[in-house]
């Protein structure tokens, strides 16, 4: 595999990103291309071993991600599994995904990145990442570099042959984990089919089976679906993100499924808690719950200040 250009020092990039400095467009292009090469060799189902700290949706909340490292330990001292939705909504999607790309390149066996529904060209055009890239770099080139790289992110991870991890949830077309392995994932997330279901579906604790959404697309999955999937695949637990919860996490179906949410005070106005899930050597799970980082308030610009306590007075009509 060809290396990065000699002029790019990953440790220096990581240092700069921890300070929230942007990398040059040419550097973004190089690290995204390099990561694509690396990810191309990853299976759609990556097997890893505990201990590992599992992180849910971050959505560009850069300071809260730094808080996670302060709480859970920095790379490579702590192994991390990120469940997707790195971008959109928050103010610092570029910094967030830049740092994660560099960490994954630098510590490929200690950092794992799963694809979320926001790691997509279509969704990032609607929910902020495209606009942020254009504003911070003056054009959309880095958005193209990042979203091209998103096509290579894996769809699922299995911890200790025991815990199945995915961004959204289960699919009616997937009974066995082996069926995930044959998906052609190197593409934009489609609207339908198993790849879409894995990043989009939600559990419905009121139901037993798969249920169609009233929106005319998408599924929810119920208690029996989860039970059967775990039995067939000899797993004990499903770990996913994708759904905002005020408590920062939610455990359903008699401890068979957990939702991890890692963006505290989501969109700088929801007032919710966040969590990361630590899986120890023995495979036991512990939620580590945290609040929004104090730096958020200092770095918020006037346009978004109104979303929180410091409301900007407005002569609306």
């Amino acid at each position: 595999m060809p290396g990065l250009p000699a002029s790019i020092d990953l440790d220096e990039c990581i240092e700069r990103l921890y300070k929230k400095e942007l990398l040059a467009e040419s550097v973004i292009e190089a690290v995204c291309n390099k990561l694509k090469e690396q990810l191309m060799h990853e299976s759609n189902v990556v097997h890893i071993l505990a201990p590992v700290t599992v992180v849910g949706d971050i959505h560009g909340q850069f300071f809260d991600m730094l808080e996670i490292f302060k709480i859970g330990g920095f790379c490579p001292d702590t192994n991390y599994l990120f469940l997707g939705d790195y971008v959109d909504r928050g103010l610092f999607s570029v910094e967030t995904i830049s740092l994660l790309v560099c960490l994954k390149l630098r510590y490929p066996s200690r950092v794992h990145l799963i694809r979320g529904n926001h790691e997509s060209r279509g969704v990032t055009q609607s929910y902020g990442f495209y606009t942020e890239c254009s504003r911070k770099y003056g054009n959309a080139n880095v958005w193209h570099h990042f979203t091209d790289m998103f096509d290579y992110l894996t769809l699922s991870v299995v911890i200790n042959d025991d815990i199945f991890c995915v961004h959204g949830g289960l699919s009616p077309s997937i009974h066995s984990i082996d069926q995930i392995k044959i998906i052609d994932r190197f593409r934009e997330i489609p609207h339908e089919g198993p790849m879409a279901d894995l990043v989009w579906s939600d559990p419905d604790p009121e139901r037993d089976e798969f249920t169609l959404s009233p929106r005319g697309a998408g599924y929810t999955f119920g208690a029996q679906v989860v039970k059967k999937f775990l039995e067939v695949n000899k797993q004990s637990h499903i770990l996913r993100a994708h759904q905002l919860c005020q408590e920062g996490y939610q455990v359903l179906y008699d401890d068979r499924l957990s939702t991890v949410w890692s963006a505290p005070n989501y969109c700088y106005r929801c007032g919710n808690m966040a969590s990361v899930l630590e899986v120890n050597d023995a495979g036991e799970r512990f939620f580590n719950v945290f609040e929004a980082a104090p730096e958020n308030a200092e770095h918020r610009d006037a346009a978004t200040a109104q979303q929180d306590k410091g409301v900007v007075v407005e002569y609306f009509l």
């Binding site: 009616p172 077309s173 339908e192 089919g193 419905d204 249920t211 169609l212 009233p214």
Partner: peptide
């Protein structure tokens, strides 16, 4: 697309 893969799911919220 759905009808091809999982026509047995008829349960709509």
């Amino acid at each position: 697309m759905r009808e091809k893969v999982s026509e047995e799911i008829r349960d709509v919220v």
